[in-house]
Design a protein around this nucleic acid. Structure first.
Lengths: 217, 217
DNA sequence: GTCTATATTTCGATAGAC
DNA sequence: GTCTATCGAAATATAGAC
């Protein structure tokens, strides 16, 4: 009767049925659903993944899923929140800095952190970028809209800081794309290269990218 | 009776009903369909865009579309081929170079070209990256598979050239992501900045990114 | 918590008139 | 080339037994 909120009833807010001590409990059905859904959303996309597909791979039936999630969209929403949780803290901290120059100075550390998280949660990032449209439709959901608008505004606040020269702000945006390129999309292009080594090389590339040169004057 | 293959019959291979001289003819229905579909695929995604949606915005009915395209997928396929046509030539030329070093040297020019095309065909690029999953399903289509496998192999051949140091190859991959970042995805982050100026800044960033430094030894 | 139905809706695709 | 009408195949979601 310890921390069993997950089994206290269907679809009710926040769950995270971890055992109080660090013991790895058998993954709750709810979380197994999320993991399987993430796999399938990457393989086939959200729209082409039916609840029947998920249920089959999980070994149950469609209807059983409705005990754990009210609607199909809620599965996607939960996964989206998982992703947002990754970058939220770091981004908030960055946006809290007053001066634009401080923000620019702190950016490289943020990207470093970003690289680590992309490597560790590659599948989640993949799911995000391969289901852009489906995720956009979550905009109607209140819980999602609140969270999402927030994150987006944090980004905007940093990348729009008028105190940072435009050139540097553009490079900050470039650095994010540069990370996604080889670490996610172009995975098949560097087979056999251990991911940590790849990450290290990307780190070096981003470092050079962010080191703005003198404008040719 | 000049170049009217487009109206010679429904869905038959290649069309491009341009008038022989450079005169801008009124866009054929077929091309208006493609343009509208591209818009909608960007706004809502391929899966959530019904043929009814397309027909409505075009001012006709669903059934009319079937005169111009045999299946819904064929609309997406045609748009995909439009995109591939953009980069194909440059990429082929690059892959034809024998030495790996030659390829690495030619890469910056390719990216420069890539930047121009991304700026000029932003919507098409957007459609591509926002419908990754739907496009992957075209893999069953023969016409698509032939074309697509080809392009992918060209990329692989260049990015795998063993003569190019891994560090540089990774940076080549980074450079592609760095272009997409600010020019496509992060469009809303630089409002008011004319796109050519943005492109120029990205060009500078990529230049620094590709200039590999001495390894710290 | 999971099952077997089944209701409901939407969409791709076809038939055939004009 | 475009229309109306309709078929058939999914898929989401619900009802109710166990």
């Amino acid at each position: 009767m310890a921390n069993q909120r997950a089994t206290a009833g269907p679809h009710r807010g926040v769950y995270k049925a971890e055992s109080p001590d660090g013991v790895t409990a058998p993954a709750s059905t709810r979380e197994r659903i999320l993991d399987i859904a993430m796999e399938l959303f990457v393989e086939q996309g959200y729209d082409k993944t039916s609840l029947r597909d998920i249920a089959e791979r999980l070994g149950t039936t469609k209807a059983a899923l409705y005990y754990h999630f009210e609607r199909k969209q809620d599965i996607l929403l939960e996964l989206h929140l998982r992703l947002h949780a990754l970058g939220r803290e770091a981004l908030e901290e960055l946006a809290r800095l007053e001066s634009g120059q401080d923000r620019a100075d702190a950016w490289p550390a943020l990207v470093d952190h970003f690289i680590d998280e992309v490597v560790e949660n590659r599948q989640l990032v993949l799911m995000h970028q391969r289901n852009h449209n489906a995720l956009a439709e979550l905009g109607n959901n209140e819980r999602h809209r609140a969270e999402n608008d927030d994150i987006e505004q944090l980004f905007r606040r940093v990348l729009n800081s008028p105190a940072i020269p435009l050139e540097q702000r553009v490079r900050m945006a470039c650095s994010l794309g540069a990370v996604i390129g080889p670490l996610v999309a172009g995975d098949e292009f560097f087979p056999g290269v251990p991911r940590p080594e790849l990450a290290e090389l990307v780190r070096g590339a981003v470092r050079d990218l962010l080191r703005t040169r003198k404008p040719r004057s």
